[in-house]
Amino acid sequence: MKSLAVILGSAFKNSIPDKLGLQPIEVDTRWGQQTIYGGTADNGRKIYALIRHGSPHHLLPHQINYRAQAAALKAVNCGALVINSSVGVLTEELPLYQPLLLTDQLMPENRLPDGSTCSMFQEPTEQQGHLVLNEGLFSEALNDQLYNRHSDSICQADNVVFVYAGGPRSKTPAENRMWAQLGGHVNSMTVAPEVVLANELEIPVAGLVVGHKYSMPDIENPPEEEIRETLVKARTATKDILVDFLEHGKPVAFGNHIYRY
């Protein structure tokens, strides 16, 4: 039976693993050891949570071992993955503090923070191939599953394009204007590598994000708040959806394919 998994960002720490009684598991991969939190849902399905920045939070975006994380999820037979993140919003057409489902991605250079190609295929193997995007990086079936169960809380937006703006620094006003002009709607310092690598491992992916600030200099934000407070709001907006997915979600078919010679 395929398992379900979520990747959690800065806002969460151990809140979902604690709520669901998930226990830390060390998974050995060729990219290094990775901690994930695992357990069993009431229906008998294995469920997992991965805390991208570590617990306690100690990894900056460019310090994350993205390949080890992806390999660990493959090792536990993940059949559907929901990636969560707090994001900056680049357009007033999208609300803050309301969950959004990603539909596309801008990652101009397909590279990890260390400069290497964003791929699990670093040397020739029988498993390597070209990731062919028949439906895109985000699973339509998984997006539909999440939206159908939570249409009352997920923003009804036909197109939410994610921009990968690698950290660890914030982006300049000129950079954010550029991303918006290129068609981006939200951005953050993570997510994109996780999406690409999971697809190479044939794991269907959904991106469930929530805006905690407007990143465009011409858009006025709500009254000044500490980043910590906005992350709490972001966590509150998505926590129930992520918990429900782990408790009641279902794996979906992989909509892309790996072309192998």
Rank of each mutant, 00 (worst) to 15 (best):
A70T: 15
N221C: 11
L112V: 12
L137S: 11
T29Q: 07
T238N: 10
G79E: 13
I241Y: 01
N65W: 13
I241H: 08
K74T: 05
D104I: 09
A71E: 12
G167E: 03
P17K: 02
I64F: 14
L131F: 08
I154R: 09
A75V: 06
Q23G: 00
L50S: 01
A72H: 09
Q34I: 01
N199V: 14
T125R: 11
Y214K: 14
A49L: 03
H185A: 05
I258V: 15
N159R: 12
M1K: 13
E109F: 13
L106F: 06
F162E: 13
V27W: 01
P113D: 07
A70R: 06
V186C: 10
S86C: 14
P223N: 12
Q105W: 02
L101G: 10
P113Y: 08
F12C: 11
I241V: 14
G255R: 04
E194H: 07
H58E: 01
D28F: 03
G39N: 00
G184T: 13
P217R: 05
G136E: 06
A5L: 05
P223W: 07
L102Q: 02
R67C: 13
V132P: 06
P56M: 03
H257Y: 15
E123I: 01
L90K: 08
H248V: 00
R228P: 01
E123S: 04
G184D: 10
Q33P: 07
G54L: 09
G207A: 15
A141Y: 02
M189H: 07
T172A: 11
K2I: 01
D218P: 15
P223C: 14
E225A: 15
Y261F: 10
A41G: 04
P24D: 01
V195I: 14
Q23T: 00
A192T: 09
